[in-house]
Design a protein around this nucleic acid. Structure first.
Lengths: 337, 337
DNA sequence: CTGAAAGCGCTTACAG
DNA sequence: CTGAAAGCGCTTACAG
């Protein structure tokens, strides 16, 4: 191992001087600084992370707490892990993955053993017990998802209400007057998941603002059950001509089933999807509002880093970052026949 | 912060005794041990990770090196991250996520700053430059994927050759004599990715063993292009009656296109899929050989932990773990008409 | 502008 | 069976 002593000897200075060159917290003469930097480069020196964190009580590590196991593995999880890891690096931090396999005690262990400076909580519910628990242990957190109590901790999320509203208004603007909202799967509605509740609410408000209404239906993970619901919609006397769908993974099944009924998209019905698109749906040219994974990752990581700084005028405490929805054009939107 | 001194004071012993109780490396009387454990529990003591790793040169952290960015984000990545994180916890380790965003230098930084005891390399190629680089830096690695040089480092992988062979033999055993192999996407074949090459090879050898042959076709991420290839197959004078597909994400598109041509599965053609199933294909009842993500994660994590132990009779060096394929029954296999 | 020294919280030979 | 002491590699007041 190359240590700070080796660098100091090579540069002909004291170890403390090397440390000051590294931290930049002291004025250093140009020649001393150059000699130190040259020695660091030549020896391939990197500060020992353990020693540094022991002495400075900063680890430059962010803990990423994965959703509770009850929620199951989420397809979108991998992209957030990747995005947050990249963002953490950009802030000079590393990312430690914490699964809730041991009942949430993973985060407590991280806090007590000082493995991280802050934590990002994924899959945040309207009420999330992890927030208070970590406050009690002195581990600052940032939330991926918008909780009921927006002041409990800094958070970042897509503005789901605005996204649903944008979908409804876009369909309305194209001339549609029979617009339906196919919401998230019913389990998410029943447990009042943040993005589910806010999406439905946004759609209804947008419709009300347009002087109309929008019937809301839950989606389903079971393709057969989803097909029955689609049938019920299109067997009605006045079938929808515009459909906003907050369940992108269901889009292939919906398209296939409609096509089987002789309903063509967008000739007979227009479609706007909202949310996370599985990677293997790349071939589908759907008009959509995509989950801005990279942007959300960058935002929540920035909040986590800010929360772990002692002072910095502490402007971000409890701040929320609401990311506006963006519509991507596709081949599933057209005026009604 | 609760330190070892606080525990020692509460238990009425020396700090070193607390340490010995924790490590178990010294005989301790029952009453002393109980007193120390009671104090630890009461105070909620966890050893400071930085201090521990500084002193013991062990971090109990495994670095997970994500695939090179050239490979793009892989849908299967999230499940491996989750699986390896869970496995690491079971071995008393944490998992640090390293993206190759900065050109592989992330791993070097981890090695030089002693942030981890070992690394798991994901998305290993037949030749992977990371292996030699980490050997040079003294960071032991374990590979998720089977490299060309199997002795270069311990590795774990599904036996892709056996999986392809099992698919071909199963179709043959059901009576099929016109079996085709739809391999991975051509980019993977062209770059000679391990699982791609081994799958094709396994299918060909199995067919040869049965005294027959198996035409091999590359798959495509472009649904339209894939449809053209399917058409070419089924427009031929002797269309396949059995299809082994090493590209599960393409299955919905294949089924839809075949159905559009009036080809029914399994009436007219049987299908066996091999590989990772996107989470949202749950509704499809496909006969298949699934990527054993949990098993592979546990195996590679065990290898990484073993590689970081100084001695332990060093039995695992360069050992490979080849996981046998398992066939899952589904509704896409039947005897030929 | 730079250095000598103390100390972060542990582990582990050394000693009894 | 247990304790006192050294030291891992840093950072940062203290001193000049």
């Amino acid at each position: 191992m190359v240590t700070i002593k080796d660098v100091a000897r090579a540069a002909g200075v004291a170890p403390s001087t090397v440390s000051y060159v590294l931290s930049g917290s002291r004025k250093i003469s140009a020649e001393t600084g150059d000699a130190v930097r040259a020695a660091i480069a030549e020896l391939g020196y990197h500060p020992n992370a353990g020693a540094r964190s022991l002495r400075s009580t900063r680890t430059n590590v962010i803990a990423l707490s994965l959703p509770l196991p009850a929620r199951g593995y989420l397809p979108v999880g991998g992209r957030f892990m990747y995005g947050i890891s990249e963002a953490a690096r950009a802030f000079g931090h590393d990312l430690l993955l914490i699964t809730a396999g041991d009942g949430g005690s993973g985060l407590e262990r991280v806090a007590r053993s000082r493995l991280a400076d802050s934590a990002v909580l994924m899959g945040v519910e309207m009420e999330d017990p992890r927030i208070d628990a970590m406050h009690g242990l002195g581990l600052p957190v940032a939330l991926l998802g918008r909780p009921a109590d927006e002041a409990a901790a800094p958070w970042a999320d897509l503005d789901w209400a605005a996204a649903a509203a944008l979908a409804v208004r876009t369909l309305h603007g194209a001339g549609h007057r029979r617009i339906h909202y196919l919401a998230t799967v019913e389990a998410d509605i029943r447990t009042r998941r943040s993005y589910s509740v806010r999406g439905i609410d946004g759609a209804r408000r947008a419709a009300a603002g347009l002087g109309t209404g929008v019937p809301v239906h839950p989606s389903s993970t079971d393709p057969a059950e989803l097909a029955r619901r689609i049938d019920a919609l299109f067997d009605a006397p006045e079938p929808p001509t515009g459909l906003a769908v907050q369940h992108p993974a269901a889009i292939p099944g919906i398209l296939r089933h409609l096509s089987g009924r002789g309903v063509e998209v967008p000739r007979d019905v227009s479609l706007i999807a909202i949310g996370n698109f599985p990677e293997d749906l790349g071939g589908l040219d759907t008009t959509r509002i995509e989950l801005p994974v990279t942007e959300m990752s960058a935002a929540v990581t920035r909040l986590a880093v800010a929360a772990s700084r002692p002072d910095r005028d502490a402007p971000d405490q409890g701040a929320g970052v609401l990311i506006p929805p963006r519509l991507t054009s596709g081949g599933t939107l057209a005026p009604p026949a």
